[in-house]
Design a protein around this nucleic acid. Structure first.
Lengths: 243, 243
DNA sequence: TGTACATCAGTGAACGCGCGTTCACTGATGTAC
DNA sequence: TGTACATCAGTGAACGCGCGTTCACTGATGTAC
């Protein structure tokens, strides 16, 4: 009992960390193979050559294992997006914000496609009997959004410069009520400097990507016989035009 | 055993039909309350004051009940969209295709919000051990798309008339490979007369809506503290502008 | 360097639960003469 | 109008299974003197 929260650096601690990782890996493999909720502690244990109760040395219970998987997945997605953003910033010609945003969009798609079971884990409803730690989860979701906001912000600025001197991210103006909500959201998570219009636009792009990725990983485009690559490209160009 | 597929009109048949409906209703209530897959035959039976095995008089097994729920849900969504389209066609001034499309978008959102468990049923991955009848499901999904295609087509035409004489639904041209895929899709489902550009645009709109609705019903906007109404409006105006 | 002790990973049995599904059956309901 | 029979809804017991979790335990590992 009492899943140890102690974190040391002794040999035992290193062993613990390793087994914890192996449990998570086995859990992900199970999610990938089985259906949405084929996550069974007993099955994981068996896969590691242990018995079920042994897992309680490493995780308090099933839910906290799941929570860690979700948080890890958010972290991975954000890391992947950040890596892409940096790589394309180093590579592309300085001012080409549109190209960088496109790279980000493709990275988002690629991640969802490479690990659909983890993508589902992020954007599905909380599983049955699982309301706990919603704060932790909301926080874990932020870094990925931050990368997107930065890229959209850069594109909005470069667009504004190209046309006139005023702030970009226009399209229709954001009504005051919504603008206030986005401002409050920004303040809560350290985006104070992001204009509301950029936040609103980023959210639209996120929804568009989420829609495309969601339909794609569930096989909707496949059953239509359509390769959605062009749709993602369209999403990028439409978006750039909307700023 | 042998779930009767006979369809008659005698008193026994009417009774059967009624009980089948009650089973479905109880199943939906269970999906609405419990988690994603809290669908249990035994629990349904208990709710109807029966024992588990009795349900096998009405449905071959759990999967075929689920399949019916999915097909019904597609049907309901399509019916709701069709009703909205007709109502707004009768009401709005003849040429106002944009207003009619907006009504459709709001109806889509409203349906997803009113019955999130059914919406999930439609757009989630096939559940564990559930590949059967995919053809039936693909067919069931078409009517809703048909309504959307018609509305987008009408808007595209009216936009084209307003500007010049050529076909609308432009934006970036659809590359030939993708165009061919959309044509084949149209031919397979009786949309031969829908231009590829309209099909592609409709799919983009569908993805945008799906993304917004998906994020909304899973509480992502709520946890941001943002009312997404404005985002749906933006989706409509952006879309109209993209034609 | 060696011994004594505390720590802790993992086991095996058990608890209570619910699941989908089959089977042989009973009793009521509708139908044919 | 009344009787005989076929149909079929629903029951209760059973099958075999897997689940998360607890508990008292054993044996190995690391640590302190």
């Amino acid at each position: 009992m009492a899943a140890a929260t102690r974190t040391g650096t002794g040999p035992r601690d290193r062993f613990r960390a390793q087994v914890r990782q192996e449990v998570k890996t086995a859990a992900l493999r199970q999610l990938a193979e089985g259906g949405p909720e084929a996550l069974s502690l007993n099955a994981i244990a068996k896969q590691l050559g242990m018995t079920g109760p042994a897992l309680y040395r490493y995780f308090a219970n099933r839910d906290s294992l799941l929570t860690e998987l979700v948080i890890d997945a958010y972290g991975d997605l954000a890391a992947e997006l950040a890596r892409t953003a940096e790589a394309s910033a180093a590579e592309a010609s300085e001012g080409d914000a549109a190209t960088r945003l496109r790279a980000l969009v493709l990275a988002y798609r690629a991640w969802a496609l490479a690990e659909p079971h983890r993508y589902r884990l992020l954007f599905r409803a909380p599983l049955p009997g699982y309301d706990a730690q919603s704060t932790r989860l909301v926080e874990a979701a932020q870094p990925a959004m931050t990368v997107l906001l930065a890229a959209v912000g850069a594109l909005a600025e470069s667009t504004a410069e190209a046309t006139d001197g005023t702030q970009g991210a226009g399209g229709a103006a954001v009504p005051e009520g919504t603008a206030a909500e986005f401002r409050a959201w920004g303040e809560r998570h350290g985006f104070e400097d992001v204009p509301e219009a950029v936040a609103a636009r980023s959210t639209m792009l996120w929804a568009q990507l989420h829609g495309l990725a969601g339909l794609e990983i569930e096989g909707n485009f496949a059953s239509m016989g359509v390769d959605p690559s062009f749709l993602y490209e369209t999403a990028v160009t439409d978006f750039a035009r909307s700023l």
